[in-house]
């Protein structure tokens, strides 16, 4: 049942050094291992041999924190619709060669090996990805009913985990899906209306400032999204932006 694999992995000591692909052989891989557990096993072997283990981001390993993210054979998070941590080795074949790279995008510079810097996402959120309500100033929760369908739609797009797969998959390196998800989540709710115009204008400005590319409706983002955020959040983003500009923003 166990598999033998050839792994081609991007190694880069730090942000300022050049990187290169390195080839490793890994034997006796169980199909029940997660992809990251497979890398753990490789790292144990590297450590035993005195070679620096491969650095990669990961934390919850249950598909929710958004830390992990690898380009696997050219696909963000690999061949299944899920996060890298929830991908299992049974999705691969004995004897296969697997190419493993960090997210590819100018706005996500490599930190080391397979780790990239996604702090640009936090800076986009700082520019309006919230509802301004200080602690203690909230009205009674039932004072504003929210139609169930709106609440459902808000929830469905709020499931974004900020992993960055959308950016990595996009040929333009655009973060429009990430941004559209937040714009739609808050824009669907009555609480999000007062800041709706300024939110979209400021977030888009920060997005462009960070060096993310524009959206040309390719749809690779939504195909790579482990949470299946729909492409129409980008339509919502564009519509809100248009409306805000019409309002004089």
């Amino acid at each position: 049942m166990s598999m033998n694999l050839t792994l081609k992995i991007w190694r880069q000591p730090d942000a300022s050094s050049a990187g290169a692909m390195h080839t490793y052989q890994l034997a006796d891989v169980s199909p029940d291992m997660s992809f990251l557990e497979m890398l753990d096993v490789l790292n144990e072997q590297l450590n035993d041999k005195g070679e620096d283990p491969i650095a990669f981001d990961h934390d919850c390993r249950e598909g929710i924190c958004g830390s992990c993210g690898l380009m696997i054979n050219g696909d963000a998070h690999g061949p299944e619709v899920t996060t890298t941590c929830q991908l299992h080795m049974r999705s691969f074949k004995d004897g296969e060669t697997i190419t493993i790279e960090p997210w590819r995008a100018d706005a996500f510079p490599v930190v080391k090996d397979l780790i990239v810097d996604r702090s640009a996402f936090d800076r986009i959120v700082q520019q309006g990805g919230y509802i301004s309500v200080n602690t203690g100033s909230a009205p009674e929760a039932h004072s504003v009913p929210v139609p169930r369908d709106d609440a459902l739609r808000a929830f469905n797009v709020a499931t974004c985990i900020g992993c960055g797969a959308c950016v990595a998959a996009c040929p333009n390196g655009s973060a429009s899906l990430f941004m559209g998800a937040k714009i739609t989540h808050l824009g669907e709710l009555p609480q999000g209306q007062p800041e709706r115009d300024s939110r979209v204008v400021n977030m888009v400005a920060q997005h462009d400032h960070e060096g993310f590319g524009g959206c040309t409706n390719i749809g690779a983002c939504t195909a790579a999204c482990p949470k299946e955020i729909p492409l129409d959040v980008i339509s919502q983003l564009n519509k809100d932006l248009r409306t805000a500009i019409r309002h004089g923003h």
Partner: peptide, 19 residues
Amino acid sequence: IDQCVAQGVPFAREYGGLL
């Protein structure tokens, strides 16, 4: 709950729009 709802946390709701 009041605070989180005001922040836009999308809690499950009933058909009448209440939590």
